[in-house]
Structure formats: structure tokens, C-alpha cells
């Protein structure tokens, strides 16, 4: 019953949680503005991942020393953001907005996002085929990762962890400043709370929606790039991870960006660290079943606290528990 957590395992868990936070924030944002649960969100991340891959394949020479990574990685993540943002904007402009204008129901829109997911999956597979002849980073275009390039230690932690925390915190701070310090951000919050009224007050709600899809797609793109630090990527990786993203958003309550951040960490660390710790304690290899963790979170949250972590009145809950004793 020895809990055996290697630093690498902890680092990988944090990397995974960071990607979930980035994805859950974007998913929640588009849900708040356009009221669409976007099942293609994971594939938006893959669009970003493949943008990063393309830059990496072009720029990483085989003999490139690891210290020379800054430029290609910087460019790669910029491309990942832009590609994800572009794909997100297209999803909204070409599919969701026309359907909304025709009075489509939330269910109809949700199913449309599944359609978008399939289209993205197809496009990514074609793209992976086209890239096949290019210099594969590690592995093939359908099974690659960048881990080897970011594994060196910088101040005790691997480079990948620093990059991932930098991108995540930078993105969240930028989003926070946008929403609280700028006039457009205030308009965004107004149209999240009451789109009809915001519109009446002169807010261009359609622009707000477009910007939210650009940001969500961009964040997803960055997350997709970060995923390549911790796991092997193929075009379908996003469609699989989207379950965990939904779990993170739902745990966060779907109505709160802060909730999405908390949910990302709760789900991300439970799937990785908690299963490992429980495996070590019980002696049963529970890590094998870690894919079930997000599903358990979704079911339990919807049954017990449908408003999510942010909707629970913690003070009342604690006082109730105390009074029972």
C-alpha cells in the first residue's frame, strides 16, 4: 500500500488538467453566449494540434538542439490559436448561426455540432495524409507527440509544464481582463446575461457571439497543442477527449467560467492522480479505467448538484453536515 507517484506522473497530470481547463473555459464560453453545447470542441483542439504539428514538421530539424525550440514552438502555438479560432468562427458562421436564424432548437444545434465534429475529423484525416511525407516529429502523422522536445528540466520542472502553465495562465488572465476591463467585455457579459436586453441597449450581440467562438476555438487550438506534450495525437484524439471537457464544464456548472477552471482541475486530476493513488492504495489497477472518471463526474454532478460546483451553497452544506454530528 505504498503510494508511488513519480514527479513525471504528477507533471503529466498537471499538463492534462491544464488542457482540460483551456478547453472547458472555451466550451463554457460558447455555451453561455450562443447556448450551444459544442460537441466539436475537441476536434477544434485537434485543428490547433495539427497546425502546431505542421510548423514543427517544417521547422524542427533532426539535429536541432532543444534550446533552439523557442521560435518554432512560439510560431506553432500562434498558428494553433489562429487555426482553432478560424475553425471555431467558421463553425459558428457557416453552421450554427444560419440554423439559429431559422429557429432551430437547442437539440438541433447540438446534433449539428456532432456533424461538424465528423466533418473536422474527415478534414483532419485528409490533412494527416497530405502531411505523411513530411518530416514526422515523433512517430507518424496519425500518432505523434512533442514530448521528447519539451522534457528537459528548467528550474526543477520540465519545459512542457512551464509552457503549458504559461499559456493557460496567460490566456485566462487575458480573458479576465477582456471581460472586466474593456467596454467590449462588459458588453459580452451583458449579452451573456440577457442577450435580448443587451441588443436593445446597442450591443452587437452577433459580434459578441463571433468573438466568443473565436476565443473558444483559439483556446481549444492552444490546448490541442499542449496535448501533444503529454499524449499521442491522432485526428480522433479530440473527439475522445471531448467527454472529459464536457465533464469539466458540467462540474463547473456550465454557467461559470471560473467553474470551468475549477472543473478542469477537478476532473483532470481525478482522472490521472486520483486513479493512480486509489490503485496504489487498493492494489487494483484502476488507472486502466480512468476513461470512466469523466463519465462518473457527469452523472454524479447532474444527479447531485446540477448547478455544478459553483452552484452549491458550500456554507450551508457544511453547517448541515456539522449539525448532523
Amino acid at each position: 500500500m505504498v503510494i508511488n507517484l513519480s514527479p513525471v506522473y504528477i507533471e503529466n497530470s498537471l499538463l492534462f488538467a491544464n488542457t482540460l481547463v483551456m478547453l472547458a473555459v472555451g466550451l463554457t464560453l460558447t455555451y453561455l453566449t450562443t447556448k450551444v453545447p459544442n460537441f466539436a470542441h475537441g476536434s477544434l483542439a485537434m485543428v490547433g494540434a495539427y497546425a502546431l504539428f505542421t510548423i514543427a514538421a517544417i521547422m524542427f530539424g533532426n539535429q536541432l538542439s532543444q534550446l533552439q525550440l523557442a521560435q518554432p514552438l512560439g510560431l506553432g502555438f500562434a498558428a494553433a490559436f489562429l487555426a482553432g479560432a478560424f475553425a471555431g468562427l467558421l463553425e459558428y458562421l457557416l453552421v450554427l448561426r444560419p440554423l439559429q436564424k431559422r429557429g432551430s432548437t437547442p437539440l438541433g444545434l447540438m446534433i449539428a455540432t456532432l456533424g461538424v465534429d465528423l466533418i473536422l475529423l474527415g478534414v483532419l484525416n485528409i490533412f494527416a495524409d497530405i502531411l505523411r511525407g513530411m518530416n514526422p516529429v515523433t512517430g507518424t502523422t496519425r500518432d505523434w507527440r512533442l514530448k521528447a522536445y519539451v522534457i528537459q528540466k528548467v528550474a526543477g520542472l520540465s519545459l512542457g509544464v512551464w509552457i503549458s502553465f504559461g499559456i493557460m495562465i496567460g490566456s485566462l488572465v487575458a480573458l479576465y481582463l477582456l471581460l472586466t476591463r474593456t467596454r467590449f467585455g462588459i458588453a459580452m457579459r451583458a449579452s451573456i446575461e440577457n442577450p435580448a436586453l443587451a441588443q436593445v441597449l446597442g450591443v452587437n450581440v452577433d459580434l459578441v457571439n463571433m468573438v466568443s467562438w473565436i476565443l473558444a476555438g483559439g483556446f481549444a487550438g492552444l490546448a490541442g497543442g499542449m496535448m501533444a506534450f503529454v499524449q499521442r495525437i491522432n485526428p480522433a484524439t479530440g473527439s475522445i477527449e471531448v467527454v472529459a471537457v464536457f465533464a469539466a464544464s458540467i462540474v463547473g456548472g456550465l454557467h461559470s467560467l471560473l467553474g470551468a477552471v475549477v472543473g478542469g482541475y477537478v476532473v483532470g486530476l481525478s482522472e490521472t492522480l486520483l486513479t493512480k493513488i486509489l490503485s496504489d492504495i487498493t492494489g487494483v489497477n484502476l488507472v486502466t479505467y480512468k476513461r470512466a472518471v469523466p463519465l462518473i463526474f457527469i452523472i454524479v454532478t447532474l444527479l447531485v448538484a446540477p448547478e455544478g460546483i459553483m452552484g452549491i451553497n458550500w456554507r450551508r452544506l457544511f453547517s448541515r453536515i456539522r449539525s448532523r454530528k
Binding site: Q199, V200, L201, G202, V203, N204, V205, D206
Partner: peptide
């Protein structure tokens, strides 16, 4: 015209 333009 969209509502936000009419408001203006």
C-alpha cells in the same frame, strides 16, 4: 437593420 444599429 440589426437591433443594435436601430438603438443607435
Amino acid at each position: 437593420l440589426p437591433p443594435h444599429r436601430i438603438a443607435k
